[in-house]
């Protein structure tokens, strides 16, 4: 099945935060009020009751002066999700259309996924001892609806649909932006981490939007999951087998050489 993606076009976003509200509403998430930090961004980062936020990033450019970039931020629904790989409870599944879905009933709150995710997206919800994150509204999409955030977006900055078609749209849009005053406009999510089931049209380079330019799963994670876990554990049955062998041979040899003189030798 073709992947269904939620594309975000930063050049169309007005930072109204309707998506933030729609997400809270659909997922029945309580409000989380963070102290005012001197800018318009409501939350420092996503949290256990806030699956998506609109980041507002100010940068100073020597030519263009102060620029204000907006970015809707949430789970990227990676093609090859690190969260899914580390979860000891197999709480994550990938739907046939590309959403990374988390099952709260399986989750034990170990937070391995939080630290494996290149964006540290899954967040710990203490009251239930689980992690949570954006679901790509799998429950809505499977009923033929759009994700709540995309459905609510008035200026059309969020568009949900076939990934290939949206990729075409994104390429055309970037071409248009580059020709019209945004020479560094780019697509994000096409190739990053082998592909994200989330596409961004950015008016500038990803770092100007607080995104890692070349996101990577931290090296300790593949070392742990691909080397330590599958192989070194075999030393344990080996040691057990050694002791079992000794248990038998010591008793056979004791019969041959005479008793161990009650625990002595010679």
């Amino acid at each position: 099945m073709a992947y269904l993606t939620n594309l975000y076009d930063s050049s169309r976003c007005t930072a109204c935060r309707g998506c933030q509200v729609a997400c809270k509403n659909w997922n029945q998430l309580p409000a989380v009020i963070e102290p005012f930090r001197g800018n318009y961004q409501t939350h420092e980062d996503t949290n256990a009751d806030t699956f998506t936020i609109v980041k507002m990033i100010e940068t100073e450019d020597p030519v263009d002066g102060v620029i204000w970039n907006f970015l809707k931020y949430q789970c990227m629904h990676c093609f090859d999700p690190a969260c899914l790989k580390v979860c000891p409870r197999d709480a994550y599944t990938k739907t046939s259309w590309g959403a990374t879905v988390h099952d709260p009933d399986k989750c034990i709150g170990c937070q391995y996924c939080t630290y494996a995710c290149p964006f540290e997206i899954p967040k710990y919800r203490k009251r239930e001892d689980i992690t949570t994150k954006c679901t790509l509204c799998a429950d809505r999409v499977e009923e033929g609806l759009q994700p709540a955030c995309a459905a609510t977006c008035a200026p059309g900055a969020l568009m949900f649909g076939n990934r290939n078609e949206l990729l075409q749209y994104a390429e055309d849009r970037v071409k248009h932006l580059r020709a019209n005053g945004f020479p560094r406009a780019t697509i994000y999510g096409k190739m990053e981490l082998g592909g994200l089931n989330k596409l961004y049209v950015l008016t500038d380079t990803p770092d100007k939007f607080g995104l890692p330019v070349d996101p990577k799963v931290p090296g300790q994670i593949p070392f742990w999951k691909d080397w330590v876990q599958p192989y070194i554990g075999w030393l344990i049955p080996l040691a057990l087998a050694g002791s079992a062998t000794s248990f038998v041979t010591t008793r056979i040899l004791a019969n041959k050489h005479g008793k161990h003189d009650e625990g002595g030798h010679e």
Partner: peptide
């Protein structure tokens, strides 16, 4: 801490078995 916890677990357990 993740790989360290597992490696230490394996080596300690190998010793304990014997």
């Amino acid at each position: 801490a993740y790989p360290v916890h597992d490696i230490a677990m394996v080596f300690a357990t190998v010793m304990v078995c014997m």
